[in-house]
Design a protein around this nucleic acid. Structure first.
Length: 209
DNA sequence: ACATTAAGTGATT
DNA sequence: AATCACTTAATGT
């Protein structure tokens, strides 16, 4: 049953003892497409390591508005949940499986230990922060400086890169929710992109050209 | 064939 | 760019 995580660990620069600890202390969590994996109100003190699949991290406010922040891919961890759990602070974000995904959940209580004990783990965590931070900046840029049409196109490209597929199986409504705008606007902008031959679309389906 | 859900569009703010 | 109101198109039962 632990074959998958072993495979994933093979590709990490972690020390053998660390790999061992990860193997022993973690548990497997599977998530189907659309399923929420981590919510602000779940107090589970676990940090995830993405084994396979694709997840999206969303920010949400109290009024049920939500905005897409960035994607999490295989081999990555969610920096947010690490800090969040560490200080017991609850920040409002949640993680949704974009595709069927597998996660390795590890108790955060190990974090202190591992960080001091293992150089490779320290690097892993800092690295993850670096990456998330960069992606966040990108997203902020696109929200603050770009008009919605550019932002939408950016979103599509980002999704294409993250998933490695030209096809996006989402409704206009879903996209609108992720960008926190209305469906009508998304429909119009997608129509425009279609006329510019940047995309092709059918019901529930968008192809990036 | 009918009901439901997704997408397209003009007009208004 | 958002909202409304309505149409058209695609799908499920």
């Amino acid at each position: 049953m632990n074959d998958k995580i072993k495979e994933v660990l093979e590709r990490t620069p972690f020390e053998p003892e660390l790999k061992d600890e990860i193997l022993k202390s973690g548990r497997l969590k599977k998530a189907k497409t659309g399923q929420t994996v981590i919510t602000p109100d779940d107090e589970a003190q676990e940090m995830p390591l993405v084994m396979s699949g694709l997840l999206r991290v969303m920010r949400n406010d109290d009024n049920g508005n939500e905005v897409f922040l960035y994607y999490l891919e295989g081999g990555e961890t969610c920096a947010m949940s690490i800090t969040c759990c560490l200080e017991g602070k609850r920040s409002s974000f949640h993680v949704v499986a974009e595709e069927d995904s597998e996660l390795w959940m590890m108790p955060v209580s190990n974090l202190d230990n591992w960080i001091t004990k293992y150089r490779s783990f320290r690097r892993f965590v800092f690295n993850s922060y670096q990456t998330r931070f960069d992606e966040l900046l990108q997203t902020i840029d696109s929200m603050v400086f770009m008009k919605l049409d550019e932002r939408l196109y950016n979103y599509l490209l980002d999704k294409k890169i993250a998933s490695g597929s030209f096809e996006i199986k989402k409704t206009h409504q879903q996209i609108a929710n992720e960008l926190n705008t209305s469906r009508v606007v998304v429909s119009r902008l997608l129509k425009k992109l279609e006329k510019e031959d940047k995309i092709e679309q059918r019901r529930n389906y968008i192809e990036i050209l």
